[in-house]
């Protein structure tokens, strides 16, 4: 691979994954599953199940002791994973040994990455074939060195925006961002919500006026009906807590993901 190809790889693959679904009002399905929940082996199996059932992009959540942007389901999953001995280097090893073919990103709070070391982490992450990372407690002001280190390894640092973000911040993210933009659906934390937030349409349209990066919307989205409703408004929809619940309750994960995937084309089971 030439250097330029390496540099662009993660961001390009993510973009392509969203663009591949942009016809016919379809959107991409991004599934969040937590590494190590309930065990590392189980979680890797769940990730492959999701990929085989229609997920276009996978987000692998890294358990953290203090997940301030997460609701009870993901908090509890993190507790279980850490209680069962989850360690980030083991995940990296496992992904290196058996690479995933679906495009995926890691979602981690900043402190586990600081402990790993920025440069070592980016190098090891690149070696797994991962496309990039999302760090929910790393706003633009703190992100620059991480974004540069990621880019240097062909990884995308995916930024988040929120309904509270000013136009200036949206512009900065849409122009400086890599891969895609993660639009947090509400001023709130992760979890399942019965209804979509008010004014989600105008919010998502507002983001799009600042650039053409794919926009994936997440937080609180759990049902095929919600996914179908968001389909014309976003390039991707992220479903997290709903899948954590499916794992917790030993539901048929393949079916849950397949129903969500069908909804990305407007088919509600």
């Amino acid at each position: 691979m030439s250097t330029t190809e390496t540099l662009a790889a993660g961001a390009t693959r993510l973009r392509a994954a969203f663009e591949a679904r942009s016809g016919d009002d379809a959107c991409a399905l991004v599934t969040y599953l937590m590494a190590g929940y309930p065990t590392l082996e189980d979680s890797l199996r769940h990730i492959r199940t999701a990929a085989a059932s229609g997920a276009d992009v996978i987000e692998i959540g890294i358990p953290h002791s203090d997940p301030i942007a997460d609701g009870p389901l993901i908090q509890e999953a993190a507790n279980v994973a850490l209680g069962n001995g989850f360690e980030l280097p083991q995940l990296i090893d496992a992904l290196r040994q058996e690479p995933l073919t679906v495009p995926y990103v890691l979602m981690s709070y900043i402190n586990p990455l600081l402990a790993y070391g920025c440069d070592e982490f980016m190098a090891d992450l690149q070696a797994t074939g991962c496309c990039g990372l999302i760090v929910p407690d790393l706003p633009l002001e703190e992100a620059l060195p991480w974004a540069e280190a990621a880019r240097g390894r062909g990884l995308a640092l995916v930024h988040l925006v929120a309904p509270t973000s000013t136009d200036a911040r949206l512009r900065a993210v849409m122009t400086a961002g890599d891969g895609f933009v993660y639009a947090v659906s509400v001023a709130g934390i992760t979890g399942t919500r019965a209804t979509l937030p008010d004014r989600i349409d105008s919010y998502l349209r507002r983001i799009k006026t600042f650039g053409d990066l794919p926009v994936a919307v997440g937080f609180g989205i759990s049902t095929p009906t919600q996914v179908a409703a968001l389909r014309p408004l976003a390039d991707g929809v992220v479903v997290g807590s709903r899948l954590i619940r499916a794992v917790r309750d030993q539901e048929n994960l393949a079916e849950v993901v397949a129903d969500l995937a069908a909804a990305t084309k407007g088919n509600i089971p």
């Binding site: 301030i68 633009l140 002001e141 309904p163 947090v184």
Partner: peptide, 20 residues
């Protein structure tokens, strides 16, 4: 300006909080 005393401080928060 960014809330640092030497190498310590800053703002490691979800985007939602930054404007607040």
């Amino acid at each position: 300006q960014r809330g640092y005393f030497g190498a310590f401080g800053g703002r490691f928060v979800p985007e939602t909080l930054t404007v607040a």
